[in-house]
Amino acid sequence: TSVLWSTNDPSVQLSYTPHRNEIMVKASQSGTFEIRAEYVNTLLGCGGSARFEINVTSPVIVTGGADTVCTGSSLTFSSIPGGVNNWTVVYNNTTQNYNNVNGPFTHTFNTAGTYAIYASKPGGCMGDAKIVKAVKVPDAPTGSITGPDKVCQLIPQTYSLSSLDSGAIPVWEVTGGTIQGSNTGQSITVIFTGAGPFSVSVRNRSLDPIGCLSPPVTLPVEAFNMGTITVTPPSGGLYCPSSSQTFTANLNGIVPDSMEWIFSPSNFGSFVSGQGTSSVTVNFNEISTNPNGVLQLKIVKCGKIHYIPVQVQLRTTPMIAFANAAPICPGSDLSFTVTVSNLPAGQSAHVLFEFANGSTHPAGSVTGSGTYT
């Protein structure tokens, strides 16, 4: 049987094969065309014809994304033409299909390797693949960050990574401050500013052009807070003139550049020991004009001066005058009149009677002038 093949579209290329009843068809553009076959039986002289309609669609072109991506990251792909497409992801001989996706397609590359991304219209042809290489994110630095975790603001601080990992370079990040110079390498210099919070972080970056970053190792940092320093006075609250007392400062882990204790007024007392340290022993002088004074701790840190004041009150010595008591009978109560001066409000003076035979008898306390029994 002899077969003559033809088509109604001149852009369609027909190629004969060794089999007369078979033809290869190649369409250079999309559309609908017809293939006709005219056949004749050369022995019997009879024949006929057949027609077949073919619908040709253009393959979908994948656009967007990137050629290289770090593992754990996602890429978004588009297509030409757009609309609804079936997407296919091929990795390591494993195929994942995502059908009837309307619009862009997003895929997360969790494993290192080479991926092929295809798109096609439902029932249509699959075009060329978009090839994506996923690069493994390096591990976090195995070393630790060395450097101060409490800092002075506006003063350069140095931080280092205790050890380097092969195949990666350290990359530094700072919160609440500025890196002076390069942000890569084993060490950096940082100046912290503002109100915080503050931190120093370092990641490993892969050496390939994409430079994937590892999870960070982070060191929290605090600015010195001088407001946390307190001075603990001795118990009692009221102190006797010419007595010695010890005052202690809780520095809360801060190491001052210098310390100095100061009396105000300056003649309120003197320093016995501990001047320039966090614990000082003082000796209070006799009251000159005012029983109230201030003991201040002057601290220099980060180039600034801070004062921590402690209010101090000395006990005043009361002046008590007795009026002569009238004669009394044995066993009777004694009423006596006293005149009290220089006794602060809220304080009292204890009265003790001493008799001619050397014996004593407590008579309680007085809080002001008057007659007592």
Rank of each mutant, 00 (worst) to 15 (best):
L4G: 13
N8G: 09
P10F: 14
S15F: 11
H19A: 14
E22C: 12
V25C: 08
Q29W: 07
E34P: 02
A37I: 06
E38S: 12
L43H: 04
G48Y: 11
G48T: 12
F52S: 11
N55M: 14
P59Q: 04
V60T: 09
I61H: 14
V62R: 08
G65S: 09
V69E: 01
S74Y: 08
G82D: 06
N85P: 08
N86Q: 13
V90K: 10
N92Y: 13
N97V: 08
Y98A: 05
H107V: 03
G113W: 13
A119R: 01
G123M: 07
I131G: 05
V135D: 04
T142V: 13
V151E: 02
S160K: 12
S163Y: 02
D165V: 03
G167R: 10
I169P: 01
P170D: 01
V171A: 03
N183M: 03
Q186K: 03
T189H: 09
A195D: 15
L207R: 12
V217Y: 00
V221H: 00
V221R: 00
N225L: 11
V231R: 07
G236S: 06
Y239L: 04
C240L: 10
S244W: 02
Q245P: 03
I254M: 08
V255K: 07
P256M: 02
S258R: 03
P265A: 06
P265V: 05
F268S: 00
F271I: 11
S273Q: 15
S278N: 14
V280E: 00
T281Q: 04
N283Q: 13
T289I: 12
N290G: 07
N292P: 00
N292E: 10
L297R: 04
R315Y: 04
F322S: 10
F322P: 05
N324L: 04
A326N: 08
I328E: 07
I328T: 13
D333L: 06
G346V: 11
A349L: 06
H361R: 15
T373G: 10
